[in-house]
Design a protein around this nucleic acid. Sequence first.
RNA 1: GGCCCGUUGGUGAAGUGGUUGAACACACAUGCCUUUCACGCAUGCAUUCAUGGGUUCAAAUCCCGUACGGGUCACCA
Length: 549
Amino acid sequence: MTRKEYANFLLPNIEHDVDYYEKKYPKRDLDNDSMVVRVAPSPTGFVHFGTIFQGKVNQNLAKNSKGVFILRVEDTDQKREVENGINEIIEALNYFDISYDEGPINKDLEKGNYGPYIQSKRKDIYGAYIKYMLENDMVYPSFATATELDAQRKEQESKKERIGYYGKYAVDRNLTMDEVIEKVKNKEPYVFRLKSPGNFNNKIVFHDLVKGEVEFPENDIDYVLLKSDGLPTYHFAHVIDDHLMHTTHITRGDEWLSSLPLHIQMFQMLGFEVPQYAHIAPIMKEENGKRRKISKRKDPEANVFEFKKRGFPIVAVKQYLMTVANSNFEEWFEQNEDKDIDEFAITFDKMNVSGALFDMEKLLNLAKNYLSKLTALEVYENLVNWAKEFDKDFADLIIREKEITIKTLDIERNSIKPRKDFALYSEIKNNIWYMFKDLFNPENYEWQKITDKDEIMNILDVYINKYYDINDDNDEWFNKVKLLCDELGYASNMKDYKKNPENYKGNVADVSTVIRVALTTSSRTPNLKDIMQILGLDEIKRRIEKIRG
RNA sequence: GGCCCGUUGGUGAAGUGGUUGAACACACAUGCCUUUCACGCAUGCAUUCAUGGGUUCAAAUCCCGUACGGGUCACCA
């Protein structure tokens, strides 16, 4: 029996051969320095923050090199696959405004000429290449069961030998064609393993775009390439897909670094051009004084849905990711605030070799700054969108009270140093609730220095009846408060007060605070004059009567 | 355990043998400004680059050992 007949026996239903696919997916017509990159998540749970990070990095790389950015879904693990996983990935990328040139648009549709972009739909392609490798003695069927493999691993552990299916442990390597055919006819399940030509004692040196020179022993382990369900393992899918899609730069998490010898070996065995690799460090988290990679299982906050739910401005999240990718982004951004952040070109040599801690403070700071620079209308619109999904009642309220909401958000906004009161859309309600009649039903007032109720009422009554005019501008408004202070025995001038505090009942700040707390319950608010103007005289009076009781 | 990778303030980091007395940003502290808060401004915050040794006139930067941290060793990606 020839190898060809043997391959036909084991893989009889492969529609096309390797040549067909090589022709079907020709080299891309791109400039020499254009990068073809991809993000390749698997739909095995919620979408991880790291996927967004890699997506952002790759999109930026492709855009700045006039290349191609691909989304490829790695759904070859049917046991762990989650319902609707593919759609969630697509939605998450869309939500964070990370657009791709090729890939699935939804579960059924896709764009691009190098598809399918969902691995489970590429079965025939993998089959064709396995068949080719079988014909060329690069791969062999292996019938080892999980229990056999487990026993082998224990034996290797006890003998302190390297673990894996290699050398004398790779027993199925020596199966004859007849033996294989016999087992297959008996319906024994099997996989295809790589017939690795490597020698563990040889070293290979490789240049990683992020890590630099790395040295490894050659791979000599006969890894599984095609699982018994006919789907490929990651290793095999990576080599075939990235070859056929003509990926030029593999940007992936550095947990793959140790698989590099295997991957390079396969590219070389198949005569494919080896892509460039950039193994990027994961974003870490600190827990009990120890760092570790943010994980899906332990860190629910890694779920990108949490970012949506908490109302992070997506632009700020993107800025943060850019900072993590290339720390010199921050400096560039300071000088180019008006530009699109993707005009900054991420480079590999500026990427950090080791993992950075996720810095929530920094992200919140970026978010705070970003929101402070939007117009009130922009904040309002984003807020409505967020609230529609996560706080329906509040959404109804601010849609009904659109004018008040926008005016409130506009307080001290259009200046060189705008207020920075909130970083997240979910925080805004707690900042402005008191502006709405429907929500203003206070139980606690944050009175500060002046707490005597008679004195409080006295201040409020004299102020409203004698001095307050809703049409006053800021200076006039403040002058009236000062006049009020003079009349009631409070210092209208802070310097005078500091010189001789004993001459006064208190100062203008104390008096302002009484008005402020009376109208908002809070001692910390934006400009009082603006708040009063928005509330209107009737509401001001109503709130004062509330305190009178 | 084997094989890899890493280690600069609380955090992200700049730094590639000599204007580094170690940028910058976030956080923190103090002060100023101020009708409160937020903002803004000013100042402070690593006598030292995990650690021990070596090379050199000169080391955070190069070499070796040690410690610590991370990754990986699946029919998971």
